[in-house]
Design a protein around this nucleic acid. Sequence first.
DNA 1: CGGCTTTTTGATGTCCGTCAATCAGTGTGG
DNA 2: CCACACTGATTGACGGACATCAAAAAGCCG
Lengths: 263, 263
Amino acid sequence: MDRSANRALDHNPVAAEDVLSGSRLLRRAFLEAPQRTAARETIILSPELRGPPVLLLRRGLAYRSTTLANGARAIVDVFLTGDIVGIEHAVAARAAFELWAADVVTYSFLSPGKLCQLMANPEIALGIMALTAEQQRWREQHIVALTRLNARGRIAAFVLEIYDRLRQHQLVTGSSFILPLTQEQIADHLGLTMVHVSRTLRRLREERLVLVDRQVIIIIDLAGLRRIAAGDADPFDETAGAGLVETSSEMPARDGDVPLSPQ
Amino acid sequence: MDRSANRALDHNPVAAEDVLSGSRLLRRAFLEAPQRTAARETIILSPELRGPPVLLLRRGLAYRSTTLANGARAIVDVFLTGDIVGIEHAVAARAAFELWAADVVTYSFLSPGKLCQLMANPEIALGIMALTAEQQRWREQHIVALTRLNARGRIAAFVLEIYDRLRQHQLVTGSSFILPLTQEQIADHLGLTMVHVSRTLRRLREERLVLVDRQVIIIIDLAGLRRIAAGDADPFDETAGAGLVETSSEMPARDGDVPLSPQ
DNA sequence: CGGCTTTTTGATGTCCGTCAATCAGTGTGG
DNA sequence: CCACACTGATTGACGGACATCAAAAAGCCG
């Protein structure tokens, strides 16, 4: 029983072949590109830099963020191992936001010029387009969550997003994984405060939906999380029969699975 | 004195030439494409449709939205006359959201297959990429607003976004314009309720920042709006000296300018 | 004028932010 | 080994921004 949320973007059949081989060519180009490492909590790219490169994350987690005039930080998006970051630098003269390493990050990079050359290959151009489309989808889901979900729903949606993306990259098989973000960073991504994230995580734990302890995330009730992330009304009425969890139709999802790091 | 917010995305010099001619070629293709009209408050594209076309809005305003399980609606983004909608349909098999006409909308459209053909031209591929990058920027700003601005800031940012985009398309010259959205639609875009939007607009009017009456928007204090949209703390302390507005450094910005419709 | 949508306004409640203190985990150095 | 510092998480008390509910007013259109 597959839900749309965790299925990979399916492609237009007209373009499917070219998209696939284009993506492959693009990744191959990255594999031959120079490689670097950034320490935890350091800036990888800043908007000051002109002609920023395009990155492929080989290991670790990074995020793009900005700081407002009042000092508040907004984490616009999160990138996992295997993600390509800043594809728009092929045409944009500078990055729109700062790119930070959440933990130790290894990445390889291509100059914008090199990227433009690659795009001369129509297959690669299509592959890039598909990549962009997919990142756009995650971002759009994030917008929906920010627009119409409360703290509980946003956190559920966020956990599921990371979960689905890790699975898509085959970086996780069980129902638990490592997320190297502090609660403050999660808060800055979801438009909440650290304090409220902490409280909401406790609630989700008490409801036996998901367990977040430090950087270890264990999904207990996947189907329940999906319902919440989809904006179902709070289960104040339907929790009349407390006790047993009866919902996990999508997957057995028990804790005790091997936690896999996103590396 | 130009602020970054209202400057068009500047391009990587390596690609600038190709981007420009690519954009021109893409628009030309649309001008030769078939054309349709959609009535106010009707669906233009739905996720059910397989192989949705890519659209160029020739006239009117459209928005992409989804409805959650609890009935709440989220308007993910807004498209103005001159915008290209659904470029990702070149590779995605279906639209991610419904596309609605906010008022009478005229558009021309290309099939995904045709788009893929066009992308074989590297200049067009670059042009499309630049287009995508620009739309992404607006969306990212929207995310920042949703994440870290209150109702006042979100509305300010939204008004400015529309204003800047209209100017970029040379659809507005003065400081007033027409925005064919109801307050409920604005609320669904900004993650607020209609009621609170109404109240906040009154406050912005009383502060002599912007005047929103029905669909007519008159920007009174452009610089002030920009400050609020950038997340400056509420001016509770600095309003000690009430009375005169002294801020408009960016533009004279007086009401009485000719209101231009976004057509 | 009647019926509709859209906006406005008031009263009341709640989700979430703010402030502040405590606690747990991690590392450091004497 | 144990103070010490430091970062991150937790909890409580309290206030405020925003939601909800409800009703009325204002536009708009046939």
